[in-house]
Nucleic acid binder design. Structure first.
Lengths: 179, 179
DNA sequence: ATATAATAATAGACAAGTCATATATAAGAG
DNA sequence: CTCTTATATATGACTTGTCTATTATTATAT
């Protein structure tokens, strides 16, 4: 399961709680290539701890509810590296909106154009978000290497969003011109 | 569930068996936006029939095993149109290989470059496949409208594959130049 | 005082998708 | 005459992901 390894990778950057993973990582930093459900994150953390790939410690807080901070273990780092080395299957495509576009000839232009506009707004929004992520320049060598990979994945995110937006604009024009 | 509606849309084009749906549709025609498991297709057909959205009839064959051909019903067409009108959530991104790229700084260049090459080959392969899909030109008005939508989704498929390939080439160059 | 929002974690029920395997028929190749 | 391949369908067990709701703590705003 990739979620397991995504979590291991994130905890390898720094120890975090389930809440942090959801809000700081999956909902922001890595949302352009992996989105995870909150319930699933907590359950996966449980499994990872059972397997000895992470350990947790309860941190008592006075200003906020107590939190359980998860740390990656040496076993976890091993498992992460091993997984990173293993070939991964290419992505599976499964996009409801494209199903709608494929069968869009069954709708009125007005109806399908509305869908298109909604998706343009969404992808433009994503693009804007990604463009606001500024990766702080760094001089330390290991950090610099990290940043190269992080920037590359972000660039794909942006390129894909741009591809979507351009295509959606083209769809709009094509449909408006009646083909 | 979108799979249900993808199947309805496909059966609305022409009656088909589960086998046809798998091989002629999901594995070829619409593979660039929806991939479906064989077992899931048959189970979904069962459900659709229970719900009265499709009906089937056993077709006796002498040259091959008998087959069960599914037809969309008027109820099914209704359900399809209604779903086509409903707004669909934007795609959820979840790509194992991008997880590997994000944490790729933990690997040797050699190891990550191997992964990149594999994925380049895959996406180039997809692109080539898509380029071989020639949609026969048509004069009948409804069919022409169909073709417009089919061509548009295919164009997105190609644009996305190109985006991937370009990005992967860039990754390769960046890593080989040490950033 | 009280309501709201952010933080933090947990659980049940379910839907969707995967993987492996089994069964059967018929054509064609060796 | 056997083996392989394509056609055709079915099922069990499982993994992965979703949706909804609940519980609790503390800070902040009204």
């Amino acid at each position: 399961m990739s979620l397991k390894h995504a979590i291991l990778g994130l905890l390898n950057i720094q120890p975090m709680t389930g809440y942090d993973l959801k809000h700081l990582a999956f909902d922001s930093t890595v949302s352009h290539f992996w989105q995870a459900d909150q319930a699933q994150i907590y359950r996966t953390l449980d499994k990872l701890e059972e397997e000895g790939l992470v350990i947790s410690q309860l941190e008592i807080q006075t200003d906020r509810p107590n939190r359980r901070v998860y740390h990656i273990t040496p076993f976890g780092i091993n498992a992460l590296i091993e997984w990173l080395r293993s070939p991964q299957s290419p992505p599976v495509y499964r996009e409801p909106f494209l199903v709608q576009m494929f069968f869009g000839y069954l709708l009125d232009d007005r109806e399908i154009l509305k869908h298109i506009d909604d998706h343009i707004a969404h992808h433009r929004g994503n693009l804007a978000e990604y463009q606001h992520i500024h990766m702080p320049p760094s001089d330390e060598a290991t950090t610099k290497r990290k940043q190269i990979f992080w920037r590359l994945t972000l660039e794909l995110g942006m390129a894909l969003e741009k591809t979507y937006v351009d295509w959606l604009e083209k769809c709009k024009a094509t449909i408006q011109n009646g083909g």
